[in-house]
Amino acid sequence: MPVHLTEFSRTRRGGGRYLRVETSSGHGARVLFFFRYDDGNWCVFPPMTGYKARAADNEVKTRCR
């Protein structure tokens, strides 16, 4: 099953890199987005920045006490 890179660009907020890959079969099309993290890794979840990152960090610290 061939996979095609159909988009490579930057997010509107923060300018982070993302890419979109597609494949299709008799069951329909499938699309996945990958987001690049500051450490160079690519993940299907966008990196948290700004307020969300601080809130998540505070939540982890609270739960670990």
Rank of each mutant, 00 (worst) to 15 (best):
W42Q: 03
E59H: 10
F8N: 12
R65M: 12
P47K: 01
R10L: 13
R30V: 11
T6C: 12
D38C: 02
R54M: 07
R54N: 06
R20W: 06
A53G: 00
K52G: 02
G28Q: 07
G15K: 04
R17T: 07
P47L: 00
H4G: 00
L5S: 04
R30P: 03
G26W: 12
P47N: 03
G15Y: 05
L5R: 03
N58A: 15
G14S: 03
M48L: 15
E59F: 11
R30S: 08
G14C: 02
G26A: 06
S24F: 10
H4R: 14
P47I: 03
D57E: 15
H27T: 06
S9R: 12
L19Q: 08
R36W: 00
S9W: 09
G50A: 03
F34A: 00
E7I: 09
D39L: 07
T6Q: 12
F35M: 02
D57A: 15
A29W: 10
D39V: 05
V3I: 14
F35W: 13
R63T: 05
R30Y: 10
E22V: 14
H4D: 05
R20K: 13
V3M: 10
R13Q: 01
P2T: 09
T6V: 15
V31C: 02
S9T: 11
H4S: 08
A55S: 11
V31M: 02
R65N: 10
T6S: 15
E22M: 12
M1Q: 07
T23I: 05
G14F: 02
F35C: 01
D57W: 12
N41K: 14
R65Y: 11
A29M: 13
H27L: 12
G28I: 07
T11S: 00
L19F: 12
R17Y: 13
L32A: 10
F34W: 10
T11V: 01
Y37N: 08
R12M: 02
T23V: 07
L19I: 06
M48I: 04
A55E: 13
T49Q: 05
Y18K: 02
P46G: 00
L5E: 03
Y37C: 01
L5C: 01
H27Q: 10
G26H: 08
A29D: 08
T62P: 04
F34C: 01
A56H: 11
G15E: 00
V21Q: 06
V60A: 08
P46S: 00
F45I: 12
R13T: 04
S9D: 15
G16T: 10
P2D: 09
